[in-house]
Structures are given as structure tokens and as C-alpha cells.
């Protein structure tokens, strides 16, 4: 069966290379090793979202039982999204779990993830803090997500007030990621973030 996984990935790889999306630079797929089990995906942030103009890297592991079981996918690029863990990059998406179907391909997975960026599901969250911020303070969520896109995915939107707050925490010896995460979790309230970090 492992043979079938490899031959299918080869076919899918050609499909992705021939697809329209690659021509539009919205998705990308690369091999990491020669045995077609580890791949690197890349998706562009969809337009009119906080992720616009960002590029997000994905780690794709193809199990031996593929395509009868879904590929294991997680974000390598840090992202602020209700259905993606801001710490580990783990993804909460039904088609990568119970709703996987053997006719789906890596191309449809990448496109589904792009669609997930465009329409989050805060009621079925992976990161509960992000989800509650999305529901309770949508504007703050958008600013935070844009800031993360800028910091990790080459997005264009800079927020100087956020950067100064992060710098303040860094000066206290906190790592940049921890500072950003703590501030994001507390709606960029410097005092509460400091409390959390040093308690």
C-alpha cells in the first residue's frame, strides 16, 4: 500500500504543477525528501483578509495508508487564527480528520486551508483565546492577525504601537515570540501581559 501512496503523490505533484493556482502563485508544493512522504506546501493569504499578501508555509506528512487516511498537515509559519494553534501550528479542519475522503488531493487540501484562512470557524476552535478574541473584539483580532502576518509571513501591515510594546517586554528579557503571544492574548494590554509572563 505504501507503493500506492507514492504513486499517487507523484501524480498529484504533477497535478499541482499543472494547476491554475500555481500559475497565479496562490499555492505551491515542494518535495522535502526523495521518498515522497515529506512535503512542503505554501499558500498565499487570501485577499480581503488579515492574511492578505502573506505567504504561509505548511509541513505535510503523507502516511503510508494515504489516500485512505488524510495527510498530516500543520503550519510552519506562525499565524493568528481561531482554528490554528498560535503555538504549535496544529490545524483544526474536518477534512484533515473525520471528513477526509480518498478522492481529495494535496491540491484540494491546500485550497481548503486557504479557504479556512478566509472564513474562520470560531465555534470550533483550535486556539480558544484567538477564537474568543475573534468573537468579542473582532477589530483587535484583525489588527493582531495582520501584525502576525507582517512578523512571520512577510505581510505589509506594520503596527508601531505593537512593536514598541514587544520591545518593552524584550528589554525585560522575554523572547520576541513569547512577548508577542502574551500581548496578543491580552488584547495588547502591556500590564496584563507582563503579569502573565512573570507570575
Amino acid at each position: 500500500m505504501a507503493n500506492m501512496a507514492v504513486s499517487r503523490i507523484k501524480r498529484e505533484f504533477k497535478e499541482v504543477l499543472r494547476s491554475e493556482e500555481i500559475a497565479q502563485c496562490s499555492i505551491k508544493l515542494e518535495l522535502v525528501n526523495d521518498c515522497f512522504t515529506e512535503l512542503r506546501g505554501e499558500i498565499a493569504g487570501p485577499p480581503d483578509t488579515p492574511y492578505e499578501f502573506g505567504t504561509f508555509l505548511l509541513e505535510i506528512h503523507v502516511p503510508e495508508t494515504y489516500p485512505f487516511n488524510p495527510p498530516k498537515v500543520k503550519f510552519l509559519t506562525k499565524i493568528w487564527h481561531p482554528n490554528i494553534s498560535s503555538v504549535t501550528g496544529a490545524i483544526c479542519l474536518d477534512i484533515l480528520k473525520d471528513n477526509w475522503a480518498a478522492a481529495m488531493t494535496l491540491r484540494t487540501v491546500l485550497l481548503s486551508l486557504q479557504a479556512l484562512l478566509a472564513s474562520p470557524e470560531p465555534d470550533d476552535p483550535q486556539d480558544a483565546v484567538v477564537a474568543s478574541q475573534y468573537k468579542e473584539n473582532f477589530e483587535m483580532f484583525c489588527r493582531t492577525a495582520k501584525h502576525w502576518t507582517n512578523s512571520y509571513a512577510k505581510g505589509p501591515h506594520k503596527f508601531p504601537d505593537f512593536d514598541t510594546k514587544i520591545q518593552r517586554l524584550k528589554d525585560m528579557g522575554v523572547s520576541e515570540f513569547d512577548a508577542r503571544a502574551a500581548l496578543s492574548r491580552h488584547n495588547w494590554d502591556l500590564n496584563r501581559a507582563t503579569e502573565q509572563l512573570f507570575s
Binding site: 500500500m1 473525520d98 475522503a101 480518498a102 478522492a103 481529495m104
Partner: peptide, 25 residues
């Protein structure tokens, strides 16, 4: 929807509780 019989058989055995068409469910 068209399948090889061995492929479809494996798919149906992978998920005995959810017997859905892989294309249209």
C-alpha cells in the same frame, strides 16, 4: 463515480461506520 474495485474496497474497509462516496459523499 468510477473506482478500481480494490481501491473502493479498501476505502470502505478503512471506515466501516461511514460508508461515503469519496468524491461526493
Amino acid at each position: 463515480h468510477l473506482y478500481c474495485w480494490p481501491c473502493l474496497n479498501t476505502w470502505l474497509e478503512t471506515r466501516p461506520t461511514r460508508q461515503l462516496c469519496p468524491v461526493c459523499k
